[in-house]
Design a protein around this nucleic acid. Structure first.
Lengths: 195, 195
DNA sequence: CCTACCGATCGGTAGG
DNA sequence: CCTACCGATCGGTAGG
């Protein structure tokens, strides 16, 4: 019973902290700000969490796990289909976790060692997954010959930026955006018969 | 003579502050950090600047001016050529001002009012320039029919992200990246004869 | 450009 | 979860 209550309270803290960090940034957010949102004193937060940075670590590494879990289920035959599925999977994680994505993309640099190094290693591994798909597409003559890291950066940055403007209530639905993103980006990459 | 010295010192402060803000973020950077880099006491900074935020304002609004100046010279006939020139101009500003671009993209939200509102208005106006080119391309039947704001966001985000990975010493030159960026993005947008 | 210093606020702890 | 409090650090000023 007590464990359950604590667990729930900890989740509440992390949830509110995520929204706060997104709005004000991690460094500019104080534990007193966070406590006030939850209607408690700042000192009381430390019954549930170890430190301010622990919250940031949880947000960043949970998001990293979610991103990896999403592309784990991608299982297509052609590089083109595989890239399409990966782009959509990546976007869906962002669209379903807008606040956490904002913190993930902007505040990770405030992680202390050794978490910072671990975080960057995970990011590189994730990026490598996209690089390999692009590489296969080039080798099979489907994609234009292009620096694969450059292509990966261009693709991921477009998707990553969506947290800045995507609104569930906007005129484009989640699926529509996923479709258009993959279409525009893969269309840019693909070899046309006329070129 | 005195005015000249002060002006130079102020430039030095802003230059070092830009690098510091990029690395640590605006809020996490202290005036004592900045003073130490310059080899003076924190209090001495205030002979040259009014406040910490004044530095941020100067970085952000100077960059905004530079971006506008770059697209002002774009003067092409077709939407395709115009978009290509605008993409290249935008990237060149970033590549030539990597540190200031990082601050511009990440730290603007720490501007206080009324500067924040003014900044966002400028950004919207700049984005609108790209939206209009895309709109013309769609109306002339050159570009695929797509939400023009979505296309603008996708294009600009790819270019904006370059400050994260572009290195003047990297294997792709500045011009090569500009070429490939515009090619990949416009190729994604353009109507192919086979579709 | 420096010394000396201000009030405010920070993350976090002790003890209940 | 609270009261009471800690040492550290913050942006900035006064006066030279």
């Amino acid at each position: 019973m007590e464990v359950l209550e604590r667990s729930t309270r900890k989740q509440q803290i992390e949830e509110q902290a995520t929204a706060l960090f997104k709005t004000k940034g991690y460094t500019a957010s104080s534990m007193r700000d966070l406590a006030q949102i939850l209607g408690i004193e700042a000192a009381s937060l430390y019954s549930h969490i170890k430190s301010k940075e622990e919250i940031l670590q949880n947000i960043c590494f949970k998001m990293a796990d979610t991103f990896f879990a999403a592309i784990e289920h991608v299982d297509e035959t052609s590089p083109e289909k595989q890239l399409e599925a990966a782009i959509k999977a990546h976007f869906q994680v962002i669209s379903k976790n807008i606040d956490a994505s904002a913190v993930f993309f902007n505040e990770w640099r405030h992680l202390s060692e050794p978490h910072l190094t671990e975080f960057l290693a995970m990011r590189t591994r994730y990026e490598q997954y996209f690089v390999e798909i692009i590489n296969q597409g080039i080798m099979k003559g489907l994609f234009r010959v292009i620096d694969e890291k450059f292509a990966m950066m261009t693709i991921l940055s477009s998707i990553n930026w969506t947290y800045q403007w995507y609104r569930p209530t906007g005129k484009m639905s989640m699926d529509e955006i996923g479709d258009h993103l993959s279409e525009l980006l893969i269309n840019g990459l693909i070899k046309t018969r006329n070129k």
